[in-house]
Each structure stands twice: as structure tokens, then as C-alpha cells.
Computed example of a mutant assay.
Amino acid sequence: MAHYRSAGNIPPKRHTQHRSPDGTLYREELMGEEGFSSDSSLLYHVGVPSAIMSARSWQLPDLATTPNEPLLARHLKLHDLFDGGAGHDVVTSRRLVLSNADVRISYVVAEEPSPLYRNATGDECVFIEAGTGTLETVFGHLAFGPGDYLIVPRATTHRWVPSGDVRAYCIEANGHISPPKRYLSTYGQLLEHSPYCERDLRGPGEPEVRDEPGVEVLIKHRGSGPGGLSGTVHVVPQHPFDVVGWDGCLYPYAFNVADFEPITGRVHQPPPVHQVFEGSNFVICNFVPRKVDYHPLAVPVPYYHSNVDSDEVMFYVAGDYEARKGSGIGQGSVSLHPGGHSHGPQPSAIEASIGAESFDELAVMVDTFRPLELGEGGTASDDGAYALSWIR
């Protein structure tokens, strides 16, 4: 996100001496993307950010996948995956729902603080379905609540601290996640036709220095396991939250879905108007409460459409999703409409929608440009009947 911020104590000139009150030199770390050619931030550490005391393997949560064969539309009932958050945390308790080489979609219900965690494979976009808490990071902390997207850049050391049960829908990239390029100026400012702007984004608070020795950090990284991933635990001599100040354009931030301003028209608008973020070979959209088509002969629900190039995943968060009435889908459901299969509203929903002036619905959609496979959480939550719902 090319939106400059600074926090804490930094020197007037970068790459120059910066000392503590007792004269000790702070250690400068550049955290940057694309080999010094994209967004970056400079962080000033009390300790040595590269220092480790020991390392061991970490067994990642089950990342094995099963192809969607025979090719079927699926209804996955995510609320069936967890009885509650007791004994679960947002990092190690995730259950993989859908995955391909570009993105992994998981779901978790958690109430325990997570271990310190660093995803070294890509950015994460975590949508908070319900619950509150704090995302603690090396940059500072972010309070979160229902409807928040939290964007955590690749290799950011962080942990999740819920205040009771938190329901989180986790979208992990194998690259970076950013606002759509068509909403950005040449220099990275969100433009006037964007459905949100910089004022809607919440950055972390002031960095916090913690003096704790012998701390463990869980790292997900490229390796030889399922999906080309492996896990490692580093034991570090000083707590990673030892930053006295930082500045730059790379940092975690939050955006609440209630601040997304929907784009509407006289006739039905295509899904790109709902886009909120993009990654490599996938996009993230959200459908929010809004006025709908106002042409006198408009049909407000979507027309049938074939996903020629993509799989479409819709997570139903709140409200009453008009196009799916009669399909069994409700809050906490995920629909998978795979490329190669036409899909659209339930037949009875088309006529019923005519004359509607607004829709009260909230959903998060991920469209991928490579086929998705089912993770163990997807297989466990599949209702087994959704593909036949259009003939009922």
C-alpha cells in the first residue's frame, strides 16, 4: 500500500546512525518487496533482527487437497467446522477449505492467543466474521472487530489476541495483496472512482518494545510439504517486538467492509464493481447492503453466467442473499462455482427479485484464475447436494 506512514522514534536521515539515550546503536532493518523495487519500510530494532538461538521443524496444519472431481458446484457449511473457540488460535487451528497454487482459503474459530507467527510465502487477508481482539505486530498493534479486513504483509511477525470467540476467514496469497490497480494513480493514491480511500484505512499504533528473552516464532515458508510449504520454529534471543520506530509504505492495515461504498447502476452491474483487493491470479470482492438496479424493467439478481476463466467462491456473512434463496445457503456458508459450469440465481429468486429497491446482504467473494481443490475443511463441510439445487 503506497501510503507513507511513520511511527515511533526515527532519525532525520535514513541509513544513518540512530542511537538510544545510553548511546547504543539501534539496528536498522529494511523490509521490502520485489528485491528493493517495490514498497518498503525501515524498522529500528533494539536487538539484532537476524539472531536466532535454535530452530526446529513445525508441523503445519493439514494442507492436503482433493481435486473437485467430478466437477461440481459446492456448498460448504463453515459453521459446522468448529463447536467454539476453546483451545483454538487463529494461526495453528485454521482448517483449509479451498486451495490452489496462488491462494489458500481457511476458516477458524478461536479464543486463545496465537503464537508469534510469520508467513514467509505471501500476504494474508483475514476477514473477521465475528468477534473482537488485537492484532499485535512488529509495527504496532491494530484493534479489530466484525467486518474488518486485516492485511498482513509477507514476513510480518505478528500474533492474534482475541477477546472471546473470533470467527476468521483467512485468505493467504503466495504473493502480495493490494487495492485494485484501476483504483490507483500512477503513484499509488486511491482515485476518486475508488469505492474507498486512504481515510478508510487504519494503520497500526505506536510500536511497542518488549524485553522477553528466548521467544519462539512460527514461520510458514516455501518447502517440500503439501502445496510446496513447510514450517519452522525459530527461538530468538529477544522478543521480535523490539522496534522503537519505523517509516515507509509497507505495514499491516485494517479496512472495514462498512466503509466500502457500493457502485450501482440502472441495470445489474458485473462483479468487478464489488472488487476490494487483488492478488496474483485472484481477486477479492465484497457484496454489501446497497440500492439495486433502477431501470423500470430491471432484474436485480444476477443473470446466469459461465466462469470461463475462474472459480468463484462466495462466503455469506450476513443479511439475506437474494440470489441463493431456496438453495440451503445461509450465514456461514461458502459456495464454490467452478470454471466450466454455468451458474446464477435459484430459478424462483429471479421473479421474486423484480421490484426490489435494495438488498440487505454481506458476502466476501474470491475469484481465482486457476482451479481450486478442496482442503480437509472443505471436504468435511460439503453438504453434498448443492449442485442439484437449480432443478428443485
Rank of each mutant, 00 (worst) to 15 (best):
L229I: 06
P371Y: 01
I171Q: 09
L142H: 04
P61V: 07
C125T: 01
S327G: 03
D259Y: 10
G223V: 02
G203Q: 03
I354Q: 12
G223Y: 05
A363R: 03
P271C: 01
D200M: 03
H221R: 15
G227I: 02
A298N: 07
P371W: 01
P11A: 02
D311C: 05
G375T: 00
R266G: 13
D382P: 07
R202A: 13
W390G: 05
A51K: 13
P180H: 08
A387W: 07
L142I: 14
E212W: 00
V244K: 06
T232A: 05
A168M: 11
D123Q: 06
G145A: 09
K181C: 02
Y304R: 11
L42V: 04
E136S: 13
R159D: 13
E208D: 14
A73P: 10
E33S: 09
P302A: 11
H15K: 08
R19D: 04
G245P: 05
V152I: 14
S342C: 02
V283K: 05
I350R: 10
P271Q: 04
H305T: 10
V126E: 11
R210E: 10
A380Y: 02
T156H: 11
Y294I: 00
R222K: 15
L229Q: 12
G328V: 04
E357K: 15
P302K: 10
G228F: 12
D80I: 02
D83I: 06
R27A: 07
M314E: 15
P204K: 02
T134Q: 10
V161W: 03
R266C: 02
F144H: 08
F82L: 08
V313A: 13
E34N: 14
H341L: 10
E111W: 00
G223N: 06
R210I: 14
D39C: 01
Y294E: 08
P302W: 07
G319N: 10
P61N: 07
D148S: 08
P180A: 04
